[in-house]
């Protein structure tokens, strides 16, 4: 079976780990607790994705988030076929972080397939990222998916879309 490595990139606490948990262990609801447990280093999981015409075995590198003091470890993308860039829709500055991480990835690895995931859509009342900002990114050719690791909405789609992009 074809194998691909992908990375989860983004600011801290945007939901990278929760998205992977939701995707990899879709049926174990217990994995999604409210208690926040931040990731140090990388956590690697595997999952087989069926894109319709091909099955791909994904090695998912869930990485520590980026903060003011610690940049995301871009070198962990070595050998990766693509990445999910995750932002938290209720914290608009995490979209800035995603943009800046992406710039650094492109500098080091060139243009890899990626999907921007705007997570936490279940928190509509606190949503901050404006449609205009999203529109601009789409106009620049970015693939954008809204997701909720809480409800599961958009999660499968994000990983599947990235896989399809990597197969092109």
């Amino acid at each position: 079976m074809l194998r691909k490595k992908i990375c989860m990139l983004g600011a801290f606490a945007v939901g990278k780990t929760s998205l992977v948990a939701r995707f990899v262990r879709a049926h174990s609801t217990g994995a999604l607790t409210d208690k926040y447990h931040t990731t140090v280093g990388v956590k690697i999981d595997t999952k087989i994705v069926d894109t319709g015409d091909q099955s791909v075995s994904l090695a998912i590198w869930d990485m520590a988030g980026e903060d003011d003091f610690q940049k995301a470890r871009i070198s962990n993308l070595t050998g990766a076929g693509g990445y999910l860039l995750v932002a938290d829709g209720t914290r608009s500055k995490t979209l800035d972080t995603a943009r800046s991480i992406n710039e650094r990835v492109v500098q080091s690895f060139g243009a890899l397939p990626f999907v921007l995931v705007l997570n936490k859509t279940d928190l509509t009342e606190d949503w901050e990222i404006e449609e205009t900002a999203i529109r601009q990114l789409i106009d620049r050719g970015w693939r954008v998916i809204r997701s909720s690791a809480r409800s599961g909405a958009g999660v499968e789609e994000a990983f599947t879309l990235l896989t399809q992009l990597m197969l092109r």
Partner: peptide
């Protein structure tokens, strides 16, 4: 070895990956 997928062959630079975690393996 799952976590070495895509890592080899190495370039001239040495590299390290801190705190690699997988099910059934310590950090």
């Amino acid at each position: 070895v799952l976590f070495l997928f895509g890592e080899l062959p190495l370039g001239a630079e040495s590299r390290s990956i801190p705190f690699v975690q997988m099910d059934g393996m310590p950090a």
